[in-house]
Design a binder for these strands. Structure first.
Length: 425
RNA sequence: GUGGCCGUAGCUCAGUUGGUUAGAGCGCCAGGUUGUGGUCCUGGAAGUCGGGGGUUCGAGUCCCCUCGGCCACCCCA
C-alpha cells in the first residue's frame, strides 16, 4: 500500500456503484423539485470570507476552510487574519442570498431556486458526517407568506417519497416563539444561545438532563425553573400542542399562529404528511428569523434535513429587505436511506470477453455493432477462471456475454449475426 | 476542538510474555488434469506490517509524534 493515497480527511472517493447510486438519488430529487417549479442554479464553491463570516451562522463559521490569498510573498510575514480572503462555503443559503442580490433584476419576483452542490466544514468526521458533503436546497425568495413554508415542506416530503423513502417527519417551530418563551421566563437576550442549545437536547437527554445542564451553565435559577416548568407542560401535553399553547407564558399563542397555519396547510395539501409543531425544536443557524423546520427519519438519529425563514439575510447583501425561506436535504444522510436496488441497471448490458489474439479493431467493431442495436457494451479481457469472471459480470448487471478469440471474424452484414451471444445468470 | 478504540498482501484475517528469510483462506497469474468454462494437483507474483522517530543485540509486537478510519462529546446535514 503506497503511502498517502487517501483522499483528505473527511472527504471521499466514490466507486462506480456508489456514484451511480448517488446520481440516481440526485436525479430523482431534482426531478421532484423541478415539478414544483423550482429552477436549478449554481454558485462558486468559494465566497469572500467577509460574506461567509456574518456572525449569524453560529459555529459553522468557525469551520470554514480558508483559502490563502494568491501572490503572497513567502518571505514576507503576513498576519494570519489577512492571509486568507476567500473561504469554501459551509452551506448553500449564504451563497444563494449573495446570488440573489447580484442577479435580482434578472429573476422573477418570486424566485424558486434548487441547489444541489457540495459544501465544506472542517469538522471531525464520523458516520454520516463529512468534511465535504452535498446539500439539496430549495428556497423561495420574495414570498413573505406561509405559502412558501407549506410548499417547501410538502415538496421536501414528496422528494423523499420519490426516492421510495417513507417515514419522513417534519417538526416545526418558530424563532420568535422560542425567543418569546425565553424572554417570558426571564432570560436576558445574551443568555438565549446557550439556553437554546440546551433545550435542543431535550429528546436526547430528557427533562432532567436539560434541567441539570441549565444549572451547570450557571444561569439564574429563577428563569431556569420557569423554563423547566414550561418544558414539562409541553412534554405532558404530548400530541396536543394546540391545547398547551394557552398555558405558555408571554404571547405564545400569537407567536405560534404561523407554525399552526403552516402545519395545517401542509396537512391540507398532503393529508398523509407527518408534520408536528414542537416548541422545543431549535436549529443551529442564527440567521433564521421566523418559522424553522427540521426533517427526521426513524432510521437516522438526528436530522436529515432542515430549514427555515431568513428574512434578514438578503437585505445584508442588497440593502433592502427581501423575504426568503428554504429547506435543505442532507444528501449524504438521505442516500443511506434509499434502497440500493432502486437504481439497478435497466439497459441491456453486454460483455465481450476476449483473448489477446483478437485484433483491437475487430473488437471495437463488434462493440460498435452491438451499441448500434441499443446495448451498452464493455470489452473485458478473458481471465483464467471464466466462470468466476462471468459471475462477477452478472453481479455488475450484465445480462449477456459473448466470447471472442483468435477465430473471431469481423461483424457481418446485419446486427449481432455471427456472434455467439449468451445470457448471463 | 476534546476524549476513547482501531490501521498486517487486492479482500477477510492469524501473528504466542519483542527473537531467525511476516503467514492462512479467497482472489489473481502460470503449468498440468478435466468434457481446452466451472473440478482437482503443482508452482508463482504480490506486504517499506498506515508514515516518521525512539528504546533494544533485535520491534508487526514497547514508547513518542504524525496520517487515516470508527465511536462519544461539541455541533450539525
Amino acid at each position: 500500500m503506497a503511502p498517502n493515497v487517501q483522499p483528505p480527511r473527511g472527504m471521499r472517493d466514490f466507486l462506480p456503484d456508489e456514484k451511480a447510486r448517488r446520481e440516481g438519488v440526485l436525479a430523482a430529487i431534482r426531478d421532484s423539485f423541478a415539478s414544483y417549479g423550482y429552477r436549478e442554479i449554481e454558485t462558486p464553491a468559494l465566497e469572500e470570507l467577509g460574506r461567509l463570516e456574518s456572525g449569524q451562522a453560529g459555529d459553522n463559521e468557525k469551520l470554514i476552510f480558508r483559502v490563502q490569498r494568491r501572490g503572497l510573498d513567502p518571505d514576507v510575514a503576513v498576519l494570519p487574519g489577512s492571509s486568507a480572503d476567500l473561504g469554501l462555503r459551509f452551506d448553500l443559503t449564504v451563497p444563494l442570498a449573495r446570488f440573489y442580490a447580484t442577479h435580482r433584476a434578472e429573476l422573477p419576483e418570486v424566485f424558486r431556486a434548487v441547489q444541489v452542490a457540495p459544501v465544506w466544514r472542517a469538522e471531525r468526521p464520523q458516520r454520516g458526517r463529512y468534511r465535504q458533503f452535498h446539500q439539496c436546497d430549495i428556497d423561495v425568495i420574495g414570498e413573505p407568506g406561509p405559502v412558501a413554508e407549506v410548499e417547501l415542506v410538502v415538496a421536501t416530503l414528496d422528494a423523499l417519497e420519490a426516492l421510495g423513502v417513507t417515514g419522513g417527519r417534519v417538526r416545526l417551530n418558530d424563532r420568535t416563539l422560542l425567543a418569546g418563551l425565553l424572554e417570558a421566563c426571564g432570560f436576558a437576550p445574551g443568555m438565549h444561545p446557550g439556553v437554546l442549545v440546551t433545550i435542543d437536547k431535550l429528546d436526547k437527554e430528557g427533562l432532567e438532563g436539560v434541567a441539570k445542564e441549565l444549572a451547570a451553565r450557571e444561569l439564574p435559577a429563577g428563569p431556569c425553573g420557569r423554563l423547566v416548568g414550561v418544558l414539562a407542560d409541553l412534554a405532558s401535553a404530548a400530541g396536543d400542542f394546540d391545547a398547551t399553547l394557552g398555558t405558555l407564558p408571554g404571547r405564545a399563542p400569537e407567536r405560534a399562529e404561523r407554525i399552526l397555519e403552516i402545519r395545517d396547510g401542509v396537512l391540507e395539501a398532503k393529508p398523509d404528511a407527518q408534520v408536528v409543531a414542537d416548541a422545543t425544536m431549535v436549529r443551529g443557524q442564527g440567521y433564521y428569523t421566523g418559522p424553522i423546520f427540521e426533517l427526521y427519519h426513524p432510521d437516522f438519529a438526528g436530522a436529515v434535513g432542515g430549514g427555515g425563514r431568513y428574512d434578514g439575510m438578503i437585505g445584508r447583501f442588497l440593502g433592502s429587505e427581501v423575504p426568503a425561506c428554504g429547506f435543505s436535504i442532507g444528501f449524504e444522510r438521505v442516500v443511506e436511506l434509499v434502497d440500493p436496488s432502486r437504481f439497478s441497471a435497466r439497459r441491456r448490458k453486454v460483455a465481450l470477453v476476449h483473448t489477446e489474439q483478437v485484433p483491437a479493431g475487430r473488437l471495437v467493431a463488434w462493440q460498435r455493432r452491438l451499441i448500434g442495436v441499443g446495448a451498452e457494451v464493455r470489452l473485458v479481457p478473458r481471465r483464467r477462471n471464466l466462470s468466476r469472471q462471468l459471475e462477477a459480470l452478472a453481479a455488475e448487471g450484465f445480462s449477456e456475454w459473448a466470447e471472442l478469440d483468435a477465430t473471431a471474424r469481423p461483424p457481418s452484414t446485419s446486427g449481432a449475426a455471427g456472434l455467439d451471444l449468451r445470457h448471463l445468470h
